[in-house]
Design a protein around this nucleic acid. Sequence first.
DNA 1: AATGAATGAGCCTTCATTCAT
DNA 2: TATGAATGAAGGCTCATTCAT
Lengths: 214, 214, 214, 214
Amino acid sequence: MGNSPAAAAMAEGATPTDAKAPRTERGRRTLRKLLDAAAEEFGEKGFHEASVSSITRRAGMALGSFYTYFDSKDALFRALVADMSEKVRTSARSALSAEMSALEIERAALAAFLRFAAEHKEIYRIIDEAEFVDPASYRDHYETIAARIADRLGAGAAAGELRDDLGELEAWAVMGMNVFVGLRYVVWGDKQGLSADAVAAGVNRLLAEGVLRR
Amino acid sequence: MGNSPAAAAMAEGATPTDAKAPRTERGRRTLRKLLDAAAEEFGEKGFHEASVSSITRRAGMALGSFYTYFDSKDALFRALVADMSEKVRTSARSALSAEMSALEIERAALAAFLRFAAEHKEIYRIIDEAEFVDPASYRDHYETIAARIADRLGAGAAAGELRDDLGELEAWAVMGMNVFVGLRYVVWGDKQGLSADAVAAGVNRLLAEGVLRR
Amino acid sequence: MGNSPAAAAMAEGATPTDAKAPRTERGRRTLRKLLDAAAEEFGEKGFHEASVSSITRRAGMALGSFYTYFDSKDALFRALVADMSEKVRTSARSALSAEMSALEIERAALAAFLRFAAEHKEIYRIIDEAEFVDPASYRDHYETIAARIADRLGAGAAAGELRDDLGELEAWAVMGMNVFVGLRYVVWGDKQGLSADAVAAGVNRLLAEGVLRR
Amino acid sequence: MGNSPAAAAMAEGATPTDAKAPRTERGRRTLRKLLDAAAEEFGEKGFHEASVSSITRRAGMALGSFYTYFDSKDALFRALVADMSEKVRTSARSALSAEMSALEIERAALAAFLRFAAEHKEIYRIIDEAEFVDPASYRDHYETIAARIADRLGAGAAAGELRDDLGELEAWAVMGMNVFVGLRYVVWGDKQGLSADAVAAGVNRLLAEGVLRR
DNA sequence: AATGAATGAGCCTTCATTCAT
DNA sequence: TATGAATGAAGGCTCATTCAT
């Protein structure tokens, strides 16, 4: 996590609406430290148990400095959710390629997500807690992903590979599968020792054929 | 906690592990009012924004009385999670019958869950927040359900209806589907106007056949 | 000041809108202690330098107890202003009697005010600071008093004792005289050693005859 | 402070006691902008609600620059009070001339004050708040003005126009009238639509003849 | 001189929990 | 049991002031 490239990117380029834009290089470094510390803190403790003072302590700066960069604890949280949400989507998209079959695409997307979750276990706690802290971005996160999955299913149907009656409902179902297996096998770990690839393969087969014996 | 007999009993009116045992009939009524008020309050505001004083106000009693029934706000929350968790499982189970095919069983279980969620929309927020407030019961809740699904899939395989390589992984995938479509179509409501039965049917077909065109 | 009858009265009877009504005798005592401590604290330090924690310390209770009786520091201040404002008016009124001539009435009203100010020197600081903390009650205070003076001048005119062209303007002028001599000779004290009665007599003569030599 | 030559000078552009001396022309302009911004800010919000950062923002400069010109927020406030105090007195004095009768002088002084207040409504809030922020200059302000009025009354007596028993007491009374009618008719405005001249005339008649019917 | 970042003491307010009646 | 008062730790946020460039 620490100073992940994505956090770095946020601190530099696409500064989120919720953070104030630093004008100096030093300021950019400070903002980055703050974001990293916050991801850790929120991931470990959740929004309410986390404290601004503990975040600044982690980041090695004075309490007041926090408010140079964010208007409130909430604003920081929102910035973080927006950031993580975008990162998940980016990571999935970059794992896909035009040559893949519709099924391969779903498998790759899931595998990418699982890989991402393995490196950012906080994402579950952070996104989940957005349900309480910032419901709008919580819905937004899932609706955006579902829409993307629905698009892919539609494309697969258009290519003649998938059933052509797949819609939003199926997209939400697929998303649910992915999220839950990620929680169980990546975040909570491996009582069963299933690797991310094994998980992706298993879910993909279920997705392809269903459960009926033939 | 999860499926302990005590929690199960609570739904019927006896005392849950986390509550103190009221001795009089009047006490039992008060405890019930408290639990109902808490379900509302936690459902609307989430654990942290909810306050004990607001809960007692809803329940129509004095603040101090709360501690006659629960040792702490946490204890109340745990009791509630256990209660809801038990109720979901009960409602699913009671919708199943021995004559159903494996697929019918899954459809009925989902339909029952959706019906339950429609009447207890708080359940999502309450269970979800357990991830932060009482992680043990959060895991317990989902692991118990997954185990039950896995059992059913195994039974279906044994009966020759389902593939016989279905295991815990598939159970988690199924649970994920169910949970997410419930969130989207029941709790958030019906932009698409899908009825609970339509949702259950759609998911069931996906579960049965998968997405591949044949 | 301490437990002045007026403060006691407020704690008992006409509880001001800004305080929560205590239900027990103990609660009434606590509220009274709080009001007395606040009058001292605000009088000595002014609103902004005063702190809730210092007020509760003065009152010999825990910080949190404050919020059992007031919603905020502002609410306490408003309650205090309303209380003092009413007390000044009451003290003036009770010094008047129907037998007095119009001039005697003005003299008695001023003397009563000076006596009141001598015992409640905080009143100047408290009312004055209301200009910043609660402008509405600041205006209200002075407008109410001016209206009362205007009434008295009108009555004097009706009785044939005073000029009959006296109105609001003159009332404000009279109020200004009274307030300023109170500040100078009562609150700041007696470089000149003028007694309250001497002040009232001097101002009264000025009021009666003006400054022109005859 | 009050009527120190330094404060007097400040109105002309030189450095007040509480400000550091800027060496360049640019510095002098910056200091001026700061003082103007401070008058606005303190006038609108009062001392405590005003913030240094907001003042510098108004003045169009960086926060840190403030301390190039003043040692503290208090110092700025003191400089401002001294400045305003001096300006009121100057404006009154410049409205008087040797040919006027004693009464005419008082009327002209009041009219000048009302005109000044109309253009500098902040003066009330600024002077009033000095009672809390810098009590010394608060007393100084009023004592200086009272002394001036007393001098004028004395001169009028010497000229045989006024009663010869008028002293400090009457001076404070006169000042009180003036200040209060200014507050009511100039700062709070004109429910009654009284013009500044009408106010001055009315007060002047009261001052001349008193309230007794003759 | 000017700037923007950094500092940290201080204050109001909330609220779970305990007490006394 | 029930009630209302009392407690005090904890935390978010502000802002005057200082620093480094």
